[in-house]
Amino acid sequence: MANMSSEIIAFVLSISGWVLTSSTIPLDYWKVSSIDGTVITTATFWSNLWKACVTDSTGVSNCKDFPSMLALEDYIQVCRGLMIAAVILGFLGAIVALVGMKCTKIGGSDRTKARVAGFSGMIFILSGLSSIIACSLYAHRITSEFFDPTYVAHRYELGAALFIGWGGSSLCIIGGIVLCFSLSENFNLYRRYTYSGVASVLSSQAKVHNGDTRLTKGTGNPPKQFDKNVYV
């Protein structure tokens, strides 16, 4: 029962992380213009994986979509690919987890379902790692430009979308690890059951042998050896 509860908790954590990761892709504020050293701010510049925008003091935004994918900077292309891979892996992990969880009626025997649940945990871990690498790579580019004294263009700070992506990635990884632990617990339980079964058989055989020895000692006579012509 405890194992089933841990699987349900891990599944909820993983799905929550996948939803947060998926919502990060279309969010606007991956990076926001810095106001460090600025006395009066008349416009806010912000950008994500798909476009760059500017919002004036009246709240009106003007956006410009990025050009062709081949003309994009390398780190944006890598972040796009990793985030899309994270979403696809999370979707596959959710389907596999539904098959492998004990609370569902599909997937075969308990041992087979445990293997499927562990496999779904590894998929969720890969999804979380893909997302966290993408967010970290984007954040590294922002911080390197911000602290570079030779960088003269507009400087940006970390946007809210990055923190949401890190949080969703962490939930996916934690949920996947718990699912992998459920796999190891099922295998340990199976090994203990097999060992106890073998031990019980050996102990019963030993008891029978000891009983025969006691019967032989109680009579005081060695066991009789019958000749092949005894009944003739």
Rank of each mutant, 00 (worst) to 15 (best):
K51I: 00
A161I: 07
G220I: 12
S5W: 01
S136H: 04
T112D: 06
Y231I: 10
G167S: 12
N62E: 13
T38L: 13
E185S: 15
G107N: 04
G90Y: 00
F119G: 10
K51Q: 15
F187E: 15
H209Y: 12
C53R: 05
S170N: 07
G37Q: 05
A94R: 00
A85K: 01
Y29D: 05
L89A: 11
S109D: 06
L179T: 02
R115P: 00
V54S: 12
M1H: 09
V99I: 15
G118S: 08
A134T: 03
I40R: 12
I35Q: 05
G90F: 00
V60D: 04
G90D: 02
D28R: 13
G165S: 07
V116W: 09
F163D: 08
G175Y: 06
S196T: 11
P149F: 13
V230I: 15
S144A: 12
T216I: 08
L98H: 00
G59Q: 08
A206S: 15
F119I: 09
S169C: 04
V198C: 14
L20K: 05
N186R: 06
D28E: 13
S34K: 03
T150Y: 10
I8N: 01
T21G: 12
W46M: 02
Y75T: 00
Y151Q: 03
G100W: 01
G197E: 14
L162T: 08
A199E: 12
I35F: 02
T216S: 11
N48M: 10
S16F: 07
F124M: 11
T143M: 12
W166L: 06
V87P: 01
S109Q: 05
R111Q: 08
P149T: 12
K224D: 03
L202C: 09
M101R: 07
S127G: 14
N48Q: 06
F11P: 00
V208E: 11
N62K: 15
V99D: 02
M83Y: 07
W30F: 11
P149N: 10
A43L: 07
D212N: 13
G107W: 04
K102A: 08
F187C: 09
F163Y: 14
R111W: 04
T44R: 11
A161N: 06
V208F: 08
S61D: 09
G211S: 13
S196G: 06
S200A: 15
F181P: 00
K51S: 14
T21E: 03
C103F: 13
T44H: 01
